[in-house]
Design a protein around this nucleic acid. Structure first.
Lengths: 586, 586
DNA sequence: CACTAGGGATAGGGTTGG
DNA sequence: TCCAACCCTATCCCTAGT
């Protein structure tokens, strides 16, 4: 209707009715939009016509727009209809002050102010302020009356809320609207207002399938050609960079997959490489440590496929166990059928659990107070190996560094003193196991070298984790002791012979000459205890250093009471079949 | 002694005894070293003398060295003593193949092979291959017999293990030996056994101040820049990681505390910012949702300082409540004095509790069987808002994005149809509350704009969580309904007027011109029920969608039976006082 | 341009004290 | 039992170097 122009007034009151009136005509968003737009108007002198042109309120009439604003700002009467096209003059605007009527309580005011502040701030145009700023800020002064708001309508607050205290806060908000709102990637389109932060791509854990794919691809194309892999073999949605990164992690893991748990509780201390080496050596050398939970059903758990790092849950599956093997020590033993379903590229992650691996004898016991801490997740490498299917796991160069490390370290040699170490390990237990000798050999390769790599007496290079907690799996102990000439217990022996130069299995793109074939069958036996492992001496010994976090580099060895041990500082060099990587082979 | 030259033989068997024999004389590392060194020998024809010169095994006699190798490779007899200086000829080496005897199980073979592979690979000399390579790689072919290895010694595997399948993988290992072995630096000395675990840092609960600081900082710098926050705004002794963690907890809480739980149960979907905005908007707009537990002692709890997000326990204190407000819903109301102790950068965390806030009217009732599930502890966000005091709440941009989001979303406008929503909210209850009108206003700022931002009819941008569980606090219901022109019930009305351009409080680093002052007092009233909330209709309504996890972006609204609502798709822009962030101001 | 190596900064999960 | 603090690893991102 007609407007009682309060504009020039110094003070004014705004009541429920006023607000109600406004809201009857405009919805809150519109109201807020007007406030924001006006607030953002760059010039002191407001150009209503200009504002209306760009308003998001839907209001097209400058007069109406101004009227609304005036009502909001000064409780101007809200004309029912807008006849005049031209907005009124805004003189004195800056002098005006509006107060709520009846007075508002302190709390409410503060609350409202804060909220409004945020809302208003939200409205800042993207282009205002430093274009690249990720955040926008604005000060907010809130006046908090000291006393309770009186119910008396006549109670006129002093100008500027003199009654209370002013609190000034700056409100800042990140520009990007609905950051990370997007579930996966694709959703970006929904794009809320601001273009804000690049919104870090949603973290997408690598799935077993992806790992397999990657490994296979690397085997085929080599480590460097991420681009090629991306184009050809790898189907997942990953960038070359990610592939590269993942690859490095896979390598690391291989290292970590290692048994001990004892060794490097703190984890980080030893390089993955070391851990890997350690692991490998432990296995190869048949560390007595693993002997711990020997007794019960020695033949219970058999991990066919690969060096299932002792402690780690022997989750060997080429299939998508969904990688959720994460829990520390799940004792899962799967029989690996060869040529596991290495899903061809097309399959996406989480996907299909086309697992062929079968969990056998899974001991899910998760002893709560198990001293040893399990390192990490399933080792992709192992998985891959398990899945195998011609996947290549790494470049020769990588492997090399391991032994290097081992070499330079102190070797701990535990010799079969009075008691054959093997004893405690395997047979020891209460219940005799399957008649199976538990003696494992690796047949030599085709042509050349093939020496027994391991151990009658257990030799432990310092890099190897001291014999210790082997079991991540409480009730199940991975057992891999090697005994050769001394069938002391006649059980748990591993003999490793390697060799064979010439014969190379015609692999995809690997130069035959450079390859080494290790034609053999490895056998890992995990004895699943029956819950009474505690009774086993070995286990306890090992378990003694539950937290053992200080091993670090020092070659700390936990010896079995029955097994005397030596610590040698000799540098160790292991050798293998000739020609491996020998230039001549090329 | 004398050597039975098996070298020329095509096949051979290696038994435990053989291995044991070797290991009696040489330790495993030595054995491995030999294998490795030989394997690495660049030439096809092995120069034993040369090898011995560089060997790391300690063996100085070429003959001995060769003998050992031969034993390893072909089970040559291991001479007890080495008289001859000159090594024998190696003819036919390549044709030889050694097998384990007794046969090895598949699993063991695989495992062992893998391990050996790694070890051997590890031994590759640094100088071989690219000098700078960080990793060593080598292909490994493992033959996996199809069947169980027979125990029969006579079981001669076909050359190349034709029996099984060949799996070729390349093994790679990182070179670096024992990197990073050092524990933390300083603490090492204390080192228990091994130099000691860094001993998990003493657990240090977050104080209210820290939360505030964090929230403010995040508002200012954004969620991602923990590092920046750490450098600039956050004074506490926390790591970026901790900030991040804490932030996530805060978000959780907020999310939970927030009414609905309805909205974004999945959490992640909405950015924290959004959540914050949502919260703010809810408050600002006086969502009816909060009306739930109105009745009892409406005037009991008063949260002076800020938008004490309804549901959350209104723990508002600028002081160190020792943050142990953790229990889910403690109804603590503190009066916030202005200019809260926004500690200037220099002050360190935990520090001074220069709190001026006083707790008033604390209702500690904690009804056990409250229908609504109380999520978590006090919502820091709310606390922060409450404490307000110079805390920065958000950058305009963030807020902006919020609004943006809100704009692009469907706005839900609940109009006072037949029944004023307010009714159910506030007064509704069973017991009439204090005479207090529950009408809140925000006085306008100094100079310019100042429109009622909220709500006669309640407007709910989609980003706002649907009205829902408001109470974290069982017996207490936060009540913040807004009604303006329609004093339908004459209760629970909130009017928000903002405005004032020119006057800017001289903030730290904010350009005055760009600032907007909102001089006003906010009032939040929380009615503490008396344990009979269940009887309250509102509460139930809200609580209906306890789990409601599908809100996401969609504007899902839970309407009160009595309140008709509209859903607008209008894009909304809120406006505010002029000049805010206007370039001209600069 | 394609990759790798490193460094940083979280995001997420597991672990543990309270 | 549950949650908050912690710790650790995995991803992602960015930069420099090859």
């Amino acid at each position: 209707m007609d407007e009682s122009n309060n504009t020039k007034t110094k003070k004014g009151l705004i009541s429920e009715d006023d607000v109600a009136l406004v809201l009857r005509r405009y919805n809150a968003p519109t109201v807020l939009a007007v406030l924001r737009e006006v607030a953002q108007f760059p010039d002191v002198k407001i150009d209503w016509n200009a504002l209306v042109k760009k308003t998001s309120t839907g209001i097209s009439n400058a007069r109406e727009y101004q009227m609304l604003w005036r009502h909001l700002a000064y409780c101007d009467m809200l004309g029912e209809k807008v006849e005049e096209a031209e907005p009124l003059d805004d003189d004195s605007d800056l002098e005006y002050e509006l107060e709520a009527f009846p007075p508002v309580s302190d709390e409410a005011s503060v609350e409202a102010a804060a909220c409004v502040k945020v809302m208003l701030a939200s409205g800042l145009p993207d282009d205002s302020g430093p274009p690249n700023r990720a955040t926008v800020e604005a000060p907010l002064t809130i006046n908090i009356p000291n006393g309770q708001a009186t119910r008396d309508p006549s109670d006129n607050p002093q100008p500027s809320c003199s009654k209370g205290t002013n609190i000034t806060v700056s409100v800042s908000v990140q520009k990007q609207p609905l950051p990370t709102v997007t579930t996966a990637e694709g959703l970006d389109g929904s794009g809320s207002a601001a273009g804000g932060l690049p919104a870090r791509r949603k973290r997408k854990p690598w799935t077993l399938e992806e790992d397999m794919e990657l490994i296979a691809a690397v085997q085929k194309c080599g480590e460097r050609n991420w681009a090629n892999i991306l184009k050809g073999d790898f189907k997942g949605e990953r960038t070359a960079s990610q592939l590269s990164q993942r690859w490095s992690i896979i390598r690391k893991r291989q290292a970590n997959s290692n048994p001990g748990g004892v060794s490097n509780p703190t984890g980080s201390q030893l390089s993955e490489t070391q851990l890997a080496t350690r692991n490998a050596l432990s296995l190869a050398l048949n560390m007595p440590e693993y002997s711990s939970l020997s007794a019960v059903g020695a033949t219970n758990l058999v991990t066919p496929a690969v060096p299932a790092a002792s402690t780690e849950a022997a989750v060997v599956s080429g299939a998508p166990l969904e990688a959720n093997t994460k829990s520390t020590a799940s004792n899962i033993v799967s029989h690996q059928n060869q040529q596991a379903p290495l899903q061809t590229a097309t399959s996406l992650p989480k996907a299909t659990s086309n697992t062929t691996a079968t969990k056998s004898r899974v001991t899910t016991k998760k002893p709560t107070s198990f001293p040893v801490k399990s390192p990490v997740g399933p080792n992709p490498m192992i998985q891959a190996a398990a899945v195998a299917a011609g996947a290549r796991i790494a470049t020769p160069s990588t492997a090399k560094s391991h032994l290097k490390a081992a070499q330079s370290k102190n070797a701990v040699h535990i010799r079969p003193g009075g008691n054959p170490l093997i004893k405690p390990s395997v047979p020891g237990g209460t219940k005799p196991v399957a008649p199976r000798p538990n003696v494992h050999y690796i047949r030599t390769g085709l042509t050349s070298a093939s020496p027994p790599a391991s151990t009658y007496s257990t030799v432990v290079p310092s890099i190897l984790p001291p014999p210790a907690v082997t079991a991540q799996v409480p009730s199940v102990s991975a057992h891999t002791s090697a005994s050769c000439g001394t069938p002391a217990e006649g059980k748990s022996t591993n003999v490793i012979t390697t060799g064979g130069v010439g014969s190379s299995s015609k692999e995809e793109e690997v130069k035959p000459a450079e390859e080494m074939n290790v034609d053999c069958a490895a056998d890992v036996v995990q004895d699943s205890g029956q819950g009474d492992q505690a009774a086993l001496p070995d286990t306890e010994m090992v378990t003694e250093n539950p937290t053992a976090e200080n091993l670090g580099n020092s070659s700390k060895v936990v010896a079995d009471e029955n097994v005397p041990m030596d610590v040698d500082n000799n540098q160790i060099e292991s050798e293998t079949a000739k020609k491996m990587n020998s230039p001549a082979a090329n």
